[in-house]
Design a binder for these strands. Structure first.
Lengths: 134, 134
DNA sequence: CATAAAATGATAACTGTTATCATATTGACA
DNA sequence: TGTCAATATGATAACAGTTATCATTTTATG
């Protein structure tokens, strides 16, 4: 009896994420947001649903620093070069969003020459950003 | 009075890492290794020295999964395309080491067109490996 | 040696995340 | 609509990795 249940909490969580495309949220931030609306959503529920969204490809999860919370971002199931990717500056900590066609070449190369099907959106490029290099 | 101290523990930790180039170690694994040699090195000391090695550029640190320990790898301070980089398979979890000149192009592109100085070695490419795609 | 600076290691503390489980909610079907 | 089994929720305990604390030991140097 595989049934798709939909609860108020699931709806509200997904709605919140969809309304903030390109933004990163920690579980704690999400919990706070709903608390400010006088809506309590249990911590476990938030993690459970985020995990489910990630499995469904609607949301992506990033681990950036030890001890920091994981970040979650709505991506709506899109993939490939159309999706944006991230540059993480090791100096200032900034997470930069970027769209760039140049990656298509590397994507093709990794697939054809290395047999590796690259998930561009999940990959975080580490380095030093333009502002910090000056 | 800035002095560089060198202790037995520091020497042994670095020697161990250097003797296993290209290998990834968690703090716990390192502790176990020395325990098998009947050498006790405190957990705090291991983390402290690993952190120091990372700052010195001798060792690189990777966060791969929530809840998993961080992995540390000796890289000896080398950088750029000569250093290997990593492909992480999201299906089987395998971490693949790779050397590839193709990345030079992307490195140049990121620097010239985006002003981003890419640290290739620290970047982990997520995707699906050749074995899991079949 | 003597001394001050710094490192060590046992362990407590902290944080993010997951597991547990009693209760509440959901969807399907009569 | 009412019943019921499947599932979700949320409070909280449990857990794991890492960091902080601090008395003790080791180090480098005079």
């Amino acid at each position: 009896m595989k049934t798709t249940y939909r609860t108020k909490q699931q709806d509200e969580l997904m709605a919140y994420l969809q309304q903030h495309p390109g933004a990163h949220h920690t579980a704690a931030q999400i919990k706070e947001y709903f608390a400010r609306q006088d809506k309590n959503i249990g911590t476990a529920t938030i993690y459970r649903q985020l995990e489910r969204f990630v499995e469904d490809g609607k949301v992506r999860k990033y681990l950036l620093e030890t001890g920091d919370s994981a970040c979650y971002e709505y991506v709506g199931g899109q993939e490939g070069c159309t999706a944006h990717f991230h540059l993480k500056c090791e100096k200032c900590g900034r997470l930069i969003h970027m769209n760039c066609e140049e990656l298509k070449r590397l994507e093709t190369h990794l697939l054809e020459d290395h047999g590796f099907e690259w998930t561009i959106g999940k990959t975080v490029f580490y380095g030093v950003c333009d502002k910090c290099r000056k």
